[in-house]
Every structure is written in structure tokens, then in C-alpha cells.
């Protein structure tokens, strides 16, 4: 693990006073606190480091260890104790030595690992500090077809399976919050939240813009000129469409309610807007060419 210089993180000198540490922490916490930086992973990460630096440096014992052992501060004292006990030849064999126990740095490290959400630095009547659990972020990949219908999906977040309902109409890039499914709180603090952002890939021929869908439909020249009936695909199935005579290339037709479901509004749908692309016939026979010539001269 890379050495983290807590003084550097807080932007203070090694001889900084307790007051300096507090001031530096408050200043940085105001900048990077998750409540002030929603959905900002980078800020959340920095806040964790600031929190950890503050916890270590504002505790005289931990600070002393950190100053003495540097990067090995969590284990330095235990190492020294182990060395001492090896040197002692007294009859201590009956007692088991405990490394990384209640005094050990491992507990400390775990404590920081799960900590998130701000320290309640004595502001509320000297109660024991409660920490909100860490917020978790997850990304879910969906196909456009999946996002068309409300469905349930099981996610594995930090080894736990969470079954979530994904409402139809969810937008690409949208983030939903599952309250209380983040890391556990410390000292009775609330659990963090789980933020799931959705990345929707579109493998269909439809383009999506909000709740509306767009598609281009090829129309043969004869149907465009004379009119007729065509069958087109929509996300909810095939639809028959009347084409009026003399339909121009690029004509747009709106199919109301055949678009994408409106997020969290059951039964409401956007529109499907289709654009006709008229295809000019190729490989004409001599006879057909003659007919077109006749037509052009009429």
C-alpha cells in the first residue's frame, strides 16, 4: 500500500498545533464533504483521506506513532513489542502473545476503511462520534430493450446480493439511490447509500431522445407516389401504417404513444417519430425506363 502523508493531505506542517489541524480539516471537509459533492467519486475519495488524516493527527497517541514510524505507524509499536518479548526469557510462554488485537493498528485501519460521512467533532454535547457508512457506487449495463420494461435485477455489491426493481424508461446515465445499502455505519451511525448509475446501450434501429423514439423507414417509390399500406416495427410490435399518395422523401410521421415508457409514470409513453426515406428503383428494365421516360414527358 502506498504511504499516505497525513500532513500533506491536510496541507499542514509537521509541527502544526491541534487547532491548526482542526482548522485545516474543517476547511478541506467543507470542500470535499459528500453532502456537498453528490455523485462525485473523486471528492468522496479525497474526503475519506482527509477524514483519516484528521483522525490520526488529532489523536495525540496516533500522531506520535505516525511521526515515529511513518508509513509503518500502524504496526511499528507491535513490532517493537514483539522484539522486546523475544528478548525476554522469562516464563511468559503460557500466555499467548496477541498481535493486531484490540490495541493493534488493524482495527484502526478497518475503522477508517468503513468510515465515511463526516466526524461529529463534539458539536453535539460530547456524544460518541457516529459515522455514516460509506456510499457505494455501482454501474449497471442495460440494453435499450431491457430499459423498455420494468424489471428486477439482482446485483452483487461488496459480496451481498441486492435485488432491485429497475423502472421502465430509465435514462442513459441516470443514477438511482438505494438508501441504506452502502457500507455499515460506525458507532450506531446510519449505513451509507448505494448509488447505481445506468449505462444503456442501444442495439436497436431506434434512436431515443427522452421518451421519444426515432426511426427511418424505407419506402419504395411506387408506394410513395401511389400510396398504400406498410408494416413497420415498433418496440411494442408491428404496426400497419397507411401511406398517403405523393408522400415526399423525408416526410415525418408521429405515432402517438409508440415511443419509450415515461419513467415512473405507468401507462404513459412517448411518441415514435418515423421519417420516410424513399428508395429509387435500380436495375430498371428497358420497358420500365421507357415508362419513366413517358411519364417524364407527360
Amino acid at each position: 500500500m502506498e504511504f499516505v502523508d497525513y500532513y500533506k493531505i491536510l496541507g499542514i506542517k509537521k509541527d502544526a498545533s491541534v487547532e491548526d489541524i482542526k482548522k485545516a480539516y474543517r476547511k478541506l471537509a467543507r470542500k470535499y464533504h459528500p453532502d456537498l459533492n453528490p455523485n462525485n467519486k473523486e471528492a468522496n475519495k479525497q474526503f475519506q483521506q482527509i477524514n483519516e488524516a484528521n483522525e490520526v493527527l488529532s489523536d495525540p497517541e496516533s500522531r506520535k506513532k505516525f511521526d515515529k514510524y511513518g508509513k509503518d505507524w500502524k504496526h511499528g509499536e507491535e513490532y517493537e513489542k514483539a522484539q522486546q518479548s523475544q528478548r525476554q526469557s522469562s516464563g511468559q510462554r503460557g500466555r499467548e502473545q496477541s498481535f493486531g488485537g484490540s490495541q493493534g493498528g488493524d482495527d484502526f485501519s478497518d475503522f477508517f476503511g468503513s468510515m465515511f460521512g463526516g466526524q461529529s467533532g463534539g458539536g453535539r454535547g460530547g456524544r460518541q462520534a457516529k459515522f455514516r457508512g460509506q456510499d457505494f457506487n455501482a454501474e449497471v449495463q442495460l440494453n435499450l430493450i431491457d430499459a423498455y420494461q420494468t424489471h428486477q435485477q439482482t446485483l452483487s455489491v461488496n459480496g451481498k446480493n441486492i435485488r432491485i426493481t429497475i423502472p421502465a424508461g430509465i435514462e442513459n446515465g441516470q443514477t438511482i439511490k438505494i438508501g441504506g445499502h452502502g457500507g455499515p455505519g460506525v458507532n450506531g451511525g446510519p449505513a451509507g447509500d448505494l448509488f447505481i448509475s445506468f449505462s444503456i446501450t442501444n442495439n436497436t434501429k431506434f434512436k431515443r431522445e427522452g421518451d421519444n423514439l426515432y426511426s427511418t423507414v424505407d419506402l419504395d417509390l411506387f408506394t410513395a407516389v401511389l400510396g398504400g399500406e406498410i408494416t413497420i416495427d415498433t418496440l411494442s410490435g408491428k404496426v400497419k401504417l397507411k401511406v398517403p399518395p405523393e408522400t415526399q422523401n423525408g416526410t415525418k410521421v408521429k405515432l402517438k404513444g409508440k415511443g419509450f415508457p415515461v419513467y415512473k409514470k405507468e401507462g404513459q409513453f412517448g411518441d415514435l417519430l418515423i421519417t420516410y426515406s424513399i428508395k429509387i428503383p435500380t436495375n430498371l428494365t428497358e420497358k420500365q425506363k421507357e415508362l419513366f421516360l413517358e411519364l417524364s414527358q407527360s
Binding site: R30, H33, R132
Partner: peptide, 16 residues
Amino acid sequence: LQKLEKILRLYYDLDI
């Protein structure tokens, strides 16, 4: 509740 707890954190933890 969530909003209120957030306000408490801003007020007590960040001195705002």
C-alpha cells in the same frame, strides 16, 4: 429525515 440529517452534518460537523 434524510434531508434533516444532512443539515445536521453540515451544521455540526462542518460548522456551517
